[in-house]
Design a protein around this nucleic acid. Sequence first.
DNA 1: GCCGTTTTCGGCCCGACTGTTTTCAGTCG
Length: 574
Amino acid sequence: MENSEFAKIFYDNAKLLELGQENVFRIRAYQRAAQSIENYSGNIESVYKKGGIEALEAIPGIGKSLAEHIEEIIKTGKLKAEQSLFKKFPKTILDVISIPGLGPKTALLLYKKLKIDSIDKLKRAATEGKLMKVPGIRAKKIENILAGIELKKRNIGRFSIGTALPLAGSLVNGLKGIKEIDQIMPCGSLRRGQETIGDIDILITSKKPGVIMDAFVKLPQVDRVLGKGDTKTSVILKNGMEADLRVVEPSSFGSAIHYFTGSKQHNIMIRELAIKKGLKISEYGVFKGNKKIGGKTEEEVFRAVGLPYIPPELRQGRGEFEAAKKNELPRLIEIKDIRGDLHVHTKATDGSNTIEEMAEKARSLGYEYIAITDHSVSTRIAHGLTKEQLLSHIKKIEKESSKLGFRILKGSEVDILPDGRLDYPDEILERLDIVFASVHSNFKMERSQMTKRIITAMNNRHVSVLSHPTGRLIGEREPYAVDLDAVLKAAKDTGTFIELNSFPARLDLDDNHCKAAKDLGVLIAITTDAHVTDQMDNMKYGILTAKRGWLEKKDILNSQPFDKLLKTLALKRR
DNA sequence: GCCGTTTTCGGCCCGACTGTTTTCAGTCG
């Protein structure tokens, strides 16, 4: 069972407890546990299988009672406590609470007064005017509920960071000219480098917020305004994404970007730390009583609670405070540490550029080397190369390399066949400098079979890197069923490297498993899988994910200088 | 329901905006 499935049960349970008007702290405990499980780098079920209830209790936010709940879910597939709540409230009522602007209190009221327990019934009641009979609900609220239903229908799920980052850039550019702006910075999940973004958060410091709010809602990207005040304005953009703008005094810049960057869990934790020290932290600053003692920079906020600066990508409430206290924060990988791109395609298969063009792009990025890794014969849709074509491609790469005076590795992205064999025989593979092995077919295999298939391929001494290990396409295709813990362990045992594919829709390996790989001592190759020269700029997304996975320069295969890289690659082939 | 360098009991982050009210509850981030 995946962590996200456990998390969902706890999230749902929390919502049902809210409807039942349970103790708010008990509700929060469920939410906290759900979040903690979601963010946990190992698999919860394996943790239980290995160490039982006790091991579960070591996970932050999980105590005796919730550990027993997890055990129950593993053993029976469900949670009795939740099932009995479902007897009180139908399952579909959770959809009602998920409408933006409509929370548990209103949902409970609607259920009691009008027996509304689904979005359909809600919509009917709203259009037929029945909601007007409910105390506390008037025309404006009904309008908002209907708008919320529409919004939810349109805005299914979150947006890729590949969409959100450029969009945030264009919003910032649209505002930059305003002279009343002191500083401007995108914050939120974007600044934390999350793979998907729910909404764009932008922080501005200024003494004249009114002017800025007016300009913001008039930006061409804006579709409609959700709320507008002196310090906070929310809009829906034309692509359906929400954007929030917050304006504070210049003297609050540090505490404001800290607050606005989150995560929520991180903020709660730092505020709790502050309370213990007799301080109060808000977006306006660090306070001792009524006296402001810090907040101009983020460093000041951390210093107030006796901690070193924690980079935004680590602010997930998953161990960063403990590491900071012990002064054991990682020195995260930076894009400047990357010395080459190891996974790119050319015109020879499904790319758009020549070997030379890709190599020149690598040079322009300041890289020392590049590896050309076109598809193997079975990926017919991408015009995979036959053995003969690959051999002549290898010659061409050698020629280009000496012509350009740039180090170009001879590589291939080789299909892993359903039985775990590779798409080229060993005598071909041994002519290559680097071999990526990928699953591109038969995604629907049974979990244990898929795991075996991949591990079989990793056992081949010519396979250097396992490419996009889960095959997911964010928002389009679920990962195939595979036991990643077993795959990572096999990587360690066989000396195989693991790819972090920087394509914004892939970001595969994800951040959590990057951390798991690091803990095992498995090196990660951050690559772009570029099919066009421009896509080599996607490296930044991979770097963000790597940072979220606590990866350092030493954990990254392609941070190594060329000579060392060759030696490292050779280790696998011994 | 969780948790402990003030606590094994008694706490549990902080503030903005909206819509409905006559001072505030609900929702959100």
